Simulated scan of single mutants.
Amino acid sequence: MAVFPERTTRAEVELGSTLQPKFGPDGLIPCITQDHATGEVLMFAFMNAESLGLTLSSGKATYWSRSRSKLWMKGEESGNVQLVREIRTDCDQDVVLIKVEQSGPANASCHNGYKSCFYRRLVDPADPTFKLETTTEPLFDPKTVYKK
């Protein structure tokens, strides 16, 4: 498992050349996942040191599931794996951005069957009913894939 270096000076964290991720008090760091080819945001999840290390060593996106309290390699159940093509961090290294190539039967990242987890938009921000509309069609049926 990867052991990340201790965070050093602000200047080294913000301008240096060593990855020094800042995990929160819960041991997690936010991770934004984008499609490498299109730049579309596919999902948002959390990583801990172990999942980030596994992502680096395997080349497959692995996250920490807060709801299940366990490691979760994307696609372990659905077959829709995320192959890591690039990893970035923000200026103070408290967020990770990974760019992936979707690989699998449906090429989807969302457990609800959509390519992206961001498949809905707010119709009218001024409307107090906060109506959402779905902007795309699902690529697979989660009931069939996950058998739940």
Results as ranks from 00 to 15, higher is better:
S67M: 09
T18D: 14
A11W: 09
P128T: 11
V100T: 09
K115Y: 01
G104Q: 01
G59F: 12
R10N: 03
P105G: 12
T9K: 06
A126K: 11
G27Q: 09
S57F: 04
L83R: 11
K70L: 11
R120K: 15
T136F: 00
Y63T: 13
Q102K: 09
E50N: 09
Q93G: 10
V123K: 11
T8F: 01
L28P: 03
K22A: 14
L54R: 14
L56G: 03
V13F: 06
F118C: 05
D94P: 01
A108K: 01
E40Q: 15
V81R: 04
L52F: 08
P125I: 12
I32Q: 08
V41Q: 09
T134Y: 02
T9D: 09
T144C: 07
P128D: 09
L71T: 13
P125M: 05
G104H: 02
R66E: 06
T136G: 00
S78H: 12
T8S: 11
W72Y: 07
K99I: 00
H111A: 13
R66Y: 07
N107E: 15
A37E: 15
R88P: 04
P25K: 13
L139D: 07
F4E: 07
T89P: 00
K115L: 07
D124A: 05
E6R: 06
A61S: 15
L56T: 12
A49R: 08
G53A: 14
N112P: 00
P105K: 12
L132D: 08
K131C: 02
K115Q: 13
G27I: 09
E101Q: 15
K147L: 08
L122F: 04
S67T: 15
S65V: 05
Q20V: 04
T134K: 07
N48P: 03
T38C: 06
A61V: 12
G39W: 10
V84G: 03
T135F: 01
M1I: 10
S58E: 14
G104P: 00
N80E: 06
M1T: 11
Q20Y: 01
